[in-house]
Design a protein around this nucleic acid. Structure first.
Length: 660
DNA sequence: ACTTCGACTTAGGACCGGCCGA
DNA sequence: TCGGCCGGTCCTAAGTCGAAGT
């Protein structure tokens, strides 16, 4: 995939200058039609600037302000408010504006922390007696544990995983471990196992679930809400905040990504005895489920997790942590973007620096300089080493190997082209050909001399060396900051480039999506092309064709009407012309909108926008853009996103610039 | 130095429920 | 009314990176 900015420069042709007279599917948009904006009270910006570095501004921490009841904008005395505005205010009302509070910087993450502990997976419910595994043609009854694990497999029967050797091998090995000796003696060949009946049973169960009555569904929903109300929140420094994942992962078969050597292994059930609880000293300690006790209860306020356990597949530590909308996460997020902006203030020097280092006498420094160049230019990840028999073979910048790059003195009219082809995080393929500076090219040639497949490209370099160097350039600078920086910067630049002042909302949103897409391409955020995509596309173009026909027909009718009008002075005929004119306009609009949709859909088929939106793009850029062009924020951020980015929505005005 | 551990962010896919058009 | 689609949410794997351990 090519990171070509040109792709985004000629966004024009589809952009409409016309205001949609009735863009019907612009949900509840009456509020924002032309004219509505006039009555919209400009959100009065708080006295203080969106102030970036003033986070340490000493503010009397009046207890009163912690509830932050929204101050009515004085500018809009009565003014009937639109529904959306009311909703938006409601959204803000209960919010604790932590971003206006004083920051402490002592490594302490909280003063008090109280919660109810995690929720464990429901206990296993044995299958009805008649649902059996068929082994070698004979039905057999399994012990509870064996049956449960068999069930995990049976549920996945239609998944690709079950056709993979590694998966099957790992599964069978672990399955046998839970079998009784008798079962183990009998069941020796996975190929002889027929899980169909179990599978059919599960399918049937889920059908039945779907078919439950409305009342039943309601009831269940209410029960779930009750559970969430109890376990889904904690109290941290006196504020009730949402927990991110309060449910402990249920047992199942490990689904590693890519060619994972451990796929199919049994992920065992986590017990309270595995779980460490973190909460403050004086608080009510969560009660372990009946008959159980916690592994440990501690009170460590230098960490943000509420509970932790170690998973059995890779020995990784898992945590229960707060929701992204929480202060703890939000503050960190904000800091992340501030760090990226700080990088901007020295980016020229950084680039000059590594450019100079390309000619260093020292090999290590040259490698470092080329690596940083890749990280900066291509937004590659740092690339820590990984254990190859514990995980899929994926790489990042520092762990690139000989076979991942090809050098071409000449390729497609370009000189000094480096062709990348490797699997990155989540085994997502990175393919890109870039023309690089002569010096970089020569260096790469040098690094690859006398190397073979399997050899590290940067043999004198690792992420620790690289980050240490970055640290010397700027406090807190690490490889990932470049990704954040370049992503956010790209968004801002593309928005400036693509947004046309007099486009309508839909067209502006297409511009936004395109800017977002430029970032996703840069960061290589891919997704599987949706099933049936081509059919969906076909259907859309069919619709478009039909619309075109409609347009033709409407035009014809208009012409006829005009003709008639010429020969008659009747007013009804004249008004008929007007009517037909309007019809043509309307159809044109609809057609245009369909075409926009189709373009958007097609350009988006294998690109995931969500990841960058959530993790790389300074939300203040989007907020500022919305405010500047009078786009309702909910067109860009859904409810969850608005909660996560509340701080940005509140503090960024239309004048905010990521790059100042 | 090099490895492992611990905490935290980033990631794509599964799943679910509501909505929309046939 | 029903199936397919779509956005939102959930889920948890897979990264990053600093610190501790050897």
């Amino acid at each position: 995939m090519d990171v070509k900015t040109e792709d985004f420069e000629d966004v024009k042709p589809t952009a409409s200058r016309k205001r949609a007279a009735n863009n019907s599917d612009d949900e509840a948009d009456e509020d924002y039609g032309p004219g509505a904006s006039a009555s919209k009270p400009k959100k009065v910006k708080k006295e203080e600037k969106p102030a970036v570095k003033s986070k340490t501004k000493a503010q009397p921490k009046a207890a009163a302000r912690s509830k932050n009841v929204k101050v009515e904008p004085t500018a809009s005395p009565d003014k009937k408010k639109t529904k959306r505005e009311l909703a938006r205010e409601q959204e803000q009302k209960e919010v604790w504006k932590w971003w206006e509070e004083e920051k402490t910087n002592d490594g302490k993450k909280w003063k008090t922390l109280e919660h109810m502990g995690p929720v464990f997976a429901p206990e296993y419910e044995p299958l009805p007696k008649h649902v059996k595994l068929v082994y070698d043609g004979k039905e057999i009854s399994l012990s509870e544990n064996t049956e449960e694990v068999a069930g995990f497999y049976a549920k996945m029967l239609l998944h690709d995983y079950t056709s993979m050797d590694v998966f099957n091998k790992n599964f069978f090995k672990d399955w046998r471990k839970v079998m009784t000796p008798k079962e183990r003696e009998l069941i020796t060949d996975l190929g002889k196992c027929n899980f169909q009946k179990m599978h059919a049973y599960f399918t049937d169960q889920s059908e039945k679930r779907k078919a439950r009555s409305k009342e039943e569904k309601q009831k269940e929903k209410a029960e779930n809400e009750k559970l969430v109300e109890i376990y889904g929140y904690c109290t941290i420094d006196g504020h009730k905040e949402k927990i991110g994942n309060f449910r402990i992962e249920p047992p199942g078969l490990f689904r590693g990504r890519g060619q994972h050597p451990k796929m199919g292994m049994l992920k065992r059930r986590v017990q309270p005895e595995d779980v460490i609880i973190n909460c403050s000293k004086g608080s009510k300690v969560p009660v372990a489920p009946k008959g159980h006790k916690w592994k440990e209860v501690r009170s460590d306020n230098e960490v943000t997790w509420l509970a932790t356990w170690t998973e059995n597949i890779q020995g990784q530590i898992k945590y229960v942590m707060l929701n992204p909308a929480s202060r703890l996460k939000g503050e960190k997020d904000w800091q992340k973007y501030e760090k990226a902006r700080k990088l901007h203030t020295i980016i020229d020097r950084v680039r000059e620096n590594y450019t100079n280092d390309w000619k260093s006498k020292e090999m290590k420094i040259r490698q470092r300089a080329v690596a940083i160049y890749f990280i900066d230019k291509l937004a590659l990840r740092a690339g820590n080493e990984k254990d190859s028999d514990e995980s899929a073979d994926t790489v990042g910048c520092c762990s690139l190997r000989y076979e991942h790059v090809k050098l071409h003195e000449q390729k497609d009219d370009l000189e000094n082209v480096v062709e990348f082809d490797f699997l990155g995080k989540d085994s997502i393929r990175y393919q890109n050909s870039v023309s690089v500076e002569k010096r970089v090219f020569k260096n790469l040639k040098l690094f690859m001399e006398n190397k073979n497949e399997g050899d590290d490209l940067f043999d004198r370099l690792n992420t620790s060396i690289l980050n240490k160097h970055l640290q010397d350039i700027m406090e807190g600078l690490t490889a990932k900051v470049f990704r954040t920086y370049n992503a956010s910067r790209t968004l801002e630049e593309q928005l400036n480039l693509l947004t046309k002042e007099d486009d309508n909302v839909a067209a502006k949103l297409l511009a936004y999506n395109r800017a977002n897409r430029a970032v996703a391409v840069l960061c290589n955020h891919q997704r599987a092309v949706p099933k049936n995509f081509s059919q969906q596309m076909e259907r859309m173009s069919e619709k478009i064709e039909n619309k075109k026909k409609d347009l033709k027909e409407a035009n014809k009718q208009l012409k006829d009407a005009k003709q008639q009008a010429k020969n008659s002075r009747s007013t009804t005929v004249a008004s008929n012309v007007e009517k037909k004119k309007k019809a043509v306009e309307r159809i044109k609009e609809q057609l245009h909108k369909l075409e926009l949709q189709a373009t958007d859909k097609d350009e988006n088929k294998d690109i995931a926008l969500g990841t960058s939106k959530l993790n790389y793009l300074d939300p203040r850029i989007s907020v500022a853009w919305c405010k500047k062009y009078d786009i309702p924020i909910e067109k860009v951020y859904n409810k969850t996103q608005r909660q996560k980015f509340m701080w940005a929505i509140d503090m960024a005005g239309p004048e905010f610039e990521f790059i100042e």
